[in-house]
């Protein structure tokens, strides 16, 4: 199950993976695919996986956080500056998170990040004051978003995903955040005029299999599934990034204007983001993990600068 619609890149890759796995395991392992959220939102799918009604599903951070709250550390605001950094930290934490997911009864088939989220708005947003003045949407019940807006001292409007488009239409909200591809798929781009050129946060994702179901497979099939899964998901992440770039081009072509952020304002955003990071300590993850991620990033940046 996945929220991704039929015909999307995501689904194409999943169908390809299904075919390859069928071939590699002589049909012993196959997927029945339910796209477009027909099985409910991610919290519902987690519930269904727990009772073994669904065996495997693709999640974004919201669903993954429902199982393992500390996974959300990969989605903290203003944490990463580039996809290189995302990939590096994710690969450092891969085995640890995979083991923790298994403790909770889920086997991770591969990370499938959706990409960086940006802010799209009806009025240009250049400073934190601009942000405070516009009515910005917040994904209802998302603790990361809540902490971020609180730290920024921005009063956001909590709404379910399904209500966002109509609310943009009626000006109930004037600004939203999302990676570029979903912005186009959900048609939000038809209701906004500006895009803030500031990667706000990474939107993570992963495909999980229920451990109970996974352990029913032979060791050989398990390995096949792990190998193929990890490989295809890596390709998927690259394709998703390409699609995001294409979506940005499409939006620019449709007349959406890119807004550059004042460097001083960026610093204010970064300070507020750091505040949000520490506000979430004890809620989603512990201080040690946050420090480790900071450390990893610091080393990575130093190495990069040295080159």
């Amino acid at each position: 199950a996945t929220l991704a619609p039929e015909g999307s890149t995501y689904l194409k890759v999943m169908r390809q993976l299904d075919e390859e796995i069928r071939a590699a395991t002589d049909g012993r392992v196959k997927f029945k695919i339910y796209p477009g959220g027909v099985q409910g939102d991610e919290k519902d799918v987690v519930r269904k996986m727990r009772i073994n009604q669904i065996h495997s599903a693709g999640f974004t951070g919201v669903g993954l956080g429902e199982i393992l709250p500390e996974e959300r550390i990969l989605e903290l605001p203003m944490l990463f500056n580039s996809y290189e950094e995302v990939d590096f930290v994710t690969s450092q934490l891969y085995d640890e998170f995979a083991a923790k997911f298994e403790e909770k009864g889920f086997v991770i088939l591969g990370w499938a990040d959706v990409g960086f989220a940006y802010v799209y708005s009806k009025n240009p947003i250049r400073t934190i004051e601009d942000l405070r003045k516009s009515k910005i949407w917040m994904w209802e019940g998302d603790p990361v978003a809540e902490a971020t807006f609180k730290a920024l001292n921005v009063a956001a409007t909590p709404l379910a995903l399904t209500d966002v488009l109509t609310s943009l239409q009626t000006n109930l909200v004037e600004a939203v955040y999302s990676p570029a591809l979903p912005t186009v798929t959900l048609q939000w781009h038809t209701k906004v005029d500006y895009m803030m050129n500031l990667p706000l946060a990474n939107v993570s994702g992963a495909v999980l299999i229920s451990k109970k179901r996974f352990e029913e497979l032979s060791a050989e099939d398990q390995q096949t599934l792990r190998d193929l899964g990890r490989q295809r998901m890596k390709e998927l992440v690259l394709k998703a990034r390409e699609d995001n770039d294409k979506s940005v081009d499409l939006m620019l072509k449709n007349g959406i204007k890119m807004v550059e952020i004042d460097p001083a304002a960026v610093e204010i955003f970064k300070t507020a983001a750091r505040q949000a990071h520490s506000d979430l300590v004890g809620k989603l993850y512990d201080r040690a993990l946050l420090d480790r991620v900071y450390g990893t990033l610091k080393t990575f940046r130093e190495k990069k600068a040295a080159k």
Partner: peptide, 23 residues
């Protein structure tokens, strides 16, 4: 139907509870 399928019956309740997510 779920029983015949071998699925846990709380599947029916998970669906019912989905109503509480509908704004």
């Amino acid at each position: 139907a779920f029983h015949a399928d071998g699925t846990d019956l709380s599947a029916v309740i998970i669906e019912l509870y989905r109503m509480a997510q509908q704004p």
